[in-house]
Write a protein that binds this DNA or RNA. Structure first.
Lengths: 201, 201
DNA sequence: GCTAACTTGGAACGACCATTCCAAGATGGC
DNA sequence: GCCATCTTGGAATGGTCGTTCCAAGTTAGC
């Protein structure tokens, strides 16, 4: 039997995800991942393939382990509009303060860079977008079921609006947009959906 | 008296803007600008300083000559909401088809990359954002003046919403979002602002 | 036509990049 | 203890990056 890995690939992906997220794909070199993890170049290449594969894996990991649970929680929340309001409040808080302040969203950032030409990456972006829309749509349909949605609102269409709004928040938070202003902006959109705007927060 | 420049700096900036826009800052090398313009390295450095300065100048140029006129037209348009609808229609058309299809917006792209750490670049982004918001706000106030805006709408706040929406359009268009879907999304937002939603297009 | 001032061409520099290669080391079954 | 098999360390490769430097060329006034 052969030798066994002397490191944890999952931990390496965690580090890679953080580096790609914080500093971007092009600004993050393999040497940065080497020095952040302590794992040797050769082991990295033997395990993952190369920088591209490392990035794709980190991006998938981000979509699965960061966005995924949040989207799921949103989709399964019975409250409708308040669930969406909570989603955005948490989003804005995460983007503007704490450990990841001003990092934006790894998937949103990927949209704007040259990495999005890659078919594998493109499919992650599309998948992420579809999941976000679906979660928003589910929450809106719950709002409709409880009469919280204005009659002229079409959940699927407004889900697209809210998804684009989330991208806007992710993007502008990187430039230092104030959380209060973002909150107010989001609240205005939610108010336009609600039967009783005063109940959304 | 000294020798005089053998090339047009403005034309160089045009080329640089196009390259940075299409392929991104990090993927565009000085050599690319050299071969696109035919201007020698030394002349580039003597005239502009370096890559960073070239990028900042190209970004400023984009904001002034691409976004500027569009924002001005929007702000000066008397029609209110139809002016905003036209703005978005033209935006979506430009982002999804024609010469610049899938390039997104140079300023929007700058938000997501590592270039936004630079104070000079950051100030261009902020300025661009403020101008966009102001133009939207002006158009909304005209809508209000003609009774086209729902009474509960606050122009300044909805201007922020529309600005974030524009960033979302810019971003998603790069990933290949369909112009029809984007149109529908934008129309839904405008309908939520209008006293008579059926009149916005 | 001379000269001072500036531009231009092209080579050269040093740093960094992703990737490869190979010898040395470690492992688990026999 | 041996060996096949994989991992690991570290040097090396070939390329590209932004930038610099200097000699040669070009210009406009005198």
């Amino acid at each position: 039997m052969p030798d066994v890995k002397h490191f944890d690939p999952e931990a390496v992906l965690d580090s890679a995800e953080e580096l790609f997220w914080r500093r971007g794909v092009t600004s993050t070199g393999v040497r940065d991942i080497v020095s952040a993890t302590g794992v040797n170049r050769s082991s990295l290449y033997a395990t993952f393939g190369g920088k591209r594969e490392l990035y794709v894996a980190a991006l998938r990991r981000y979509a699965d382990r960061r966005s995924g649970p949040v989207f799921r929680r949103l989709a399964e929340d019975d409250r409708g509009l308040p669930a969406i309001a909570d989603f955005f409040r948490a989003l804005i808080r995460a983007r503007c303060s704490g450990e990841h302040a001003r990092w934006g969203c790894l998937v949103t950032n990927a949209h704007a860079g040259p990495e999005q030409d890659d078919p594998d990456i493109r499919s992650v972006l599309q998948d992420h977008h579809d999941r976000l829309r679906a979660a928003m749509c589910a929450a809106l349909e719950r709002a409709r079921a409880t009469g919280g949605l204005r009659p002229d609102i079409v959940p699927a269409t407004s889900a697209d609006v809210l998804a684009l709004l989330a991208y806007g928040v992710n993007l502008r938070s990187r430039a230092g947009a104030s959380p209060e202003a973002l909150d107010e902006t989001v609240t205005a959109v939610l108010a336009s959906l609600a039967t009783r705007p005063e109940e959304i927060r």
